[in-house]
Amino acid sequence: MQRVCFLLRVRPERLIEYRARHTAVWPEMLAALTASGWHNYSLFLREDGLLVGYLETPDFDAARAAMAATDVNARWQAEMADFFEDLDGRGPDEEMRPLTEVFHLA
């Protein structure tokens, strides 16, 4: 199982709304994530907008590709894009660059 951690930055003026959106993630989005191989997926948000994402998956590239092929992901990404800084016209899912794991306590 691959452990994946990534960073994004939420616009400070959108933090409250970003949190609210994630209290009611669309059921079809949750189902698509699960079906695409995203497991133990968590998002952590710091008060300055730093967002840390963590997930486990057998193959991150395959999990991303599976999500990219869904209509619900396209709709979710379109709605969420304005919440983030520094996307340069890309979607949040395209900016998820995994950090290199340097230690893991098993």
Rank of each mutant, 00 (worst) to 15 (best):
Q2K: 09
V4D: 01
V4F: 01
L7V: 00
L8S: 07
L8H: 04
L8R: 09
L8V: 00
R11Q: 14
R11G: 04
R14S: 09
L15E: 06
I16A: 14
I16L: 12
E17Y: 00
E17V: 02
R19Y: 04
A20I: 07
T23R: 14
T23N: 11
T23E: 14
T23K: 11
V25D: 08
V25K: 01
P27W: 10
P27C: 11
P27E: 13
M29P: 03
L30Y: 02
L33G: 04
A35H: 06
A35Y: 02
A35N: 10
G37D: 06
W38G: 07
L43G: 03
L43S: 08
L45H: 07
L45W: 03
L45G: 06
R46S: 14
D48R: 15
D48S: 15
D48Y: 13
L50D: 15
L50T: 11
G53F: 03
Y54L: 08
Y54T: 12
Y54W: 09
L55F: 01
E56M: 10
T57D: 11
T57V: 05
T57Y: 03
D61W: 01
A62I: 04
R64Q: 12
R64P: 02
A65F: 07
A65C: 11
A66E: 12
M67W: 03
T70Q: 11
D71S: 05
A74H: 04
W76P: 03
W76E: 10
A78V: 01
A78M: 03
E79G: 10
M80Y: 05
D82H: 08
D82R: 07
D82F: 00
F83S: 05
F84W: 02
E85N: 10
L87F: 00
D88N: 15
D88H: 14
R90Y: 07
R90I: 04
G91S: 12
P92F: 01
P92E: 08
D93W: 11
E94A: 09
M96P: 04
M96W: 02
T100A: 13
T100H: 12
F103H: 10
H104K: 15
H104S: 15
H104L: 15
A106L: 11
